[in-house]
């Protein structure tokens, strides 16, 4: 289930960074270095990024430009990372964030 845009009348969608892998909640997915983490997740059909503090409700992409923080996740042990404005690096370990999360030591 890949949601990458292929063949576009206007855009050059083949211009991408090197193909790498990242781990999301223990599952290895493909990504392109330099693209927002969120884009890699969406391309693999991952649409839940975090759960809210009080009601434990799921949240996913909402603004896509770093303003709303609904796409925050734990990246390499660091919580509250806005995945829409944080670029992919090879081997990143990403986890769905539950509440505020204290993160983990690196």
């Amino acid at each position: 289930m890949c949601l990458r845009v292929e063949d576009h009348v206007i855009l050059d969608v083949d211009k991408k960074g090197p193909k790498v892998t990242i781990t999301v909640d223990g599952k290895v997915i493909e990504a392109y270095e330099g693209e927002p983490i969120l884009a890699a997740l969406l391309s693999s059909g991952i649409r839940i990024n975090r759960y809210t503090v009080k009601k434990h409700e799921p949240r996913g992409i909402f603004c896509g430009i770093g303003q709303c923080s609904d796409c925050s996740m734990i990246v390499d042990g660091q919580p509250n990372v806005r995945t829409c404005i944080t670029p992919v690096k090879a081997g990143m370990v990403i986890k769905t964030q539950d509440g505020l999360s204290k993160g983990e030591s690196k």
């Binding site: 990458r4 927002p36 992409i61 909402f62």
Partner: peptide, 25 residues
């Protein structure tokens, strides 16, 4: 309106035109 899959139109536009990923089908 807060469940995943509901988003700004601009957010969807960023995903397709800048990141070349579809936010859904």
């Amino acid at each position: 309106w807060t469940i995943p899959g509901v988003m700004g139109a601009g957010a969807a536009q960023t995903m397709i035109n800048v990141n070349h990923v579809r936010p859904g089908r």
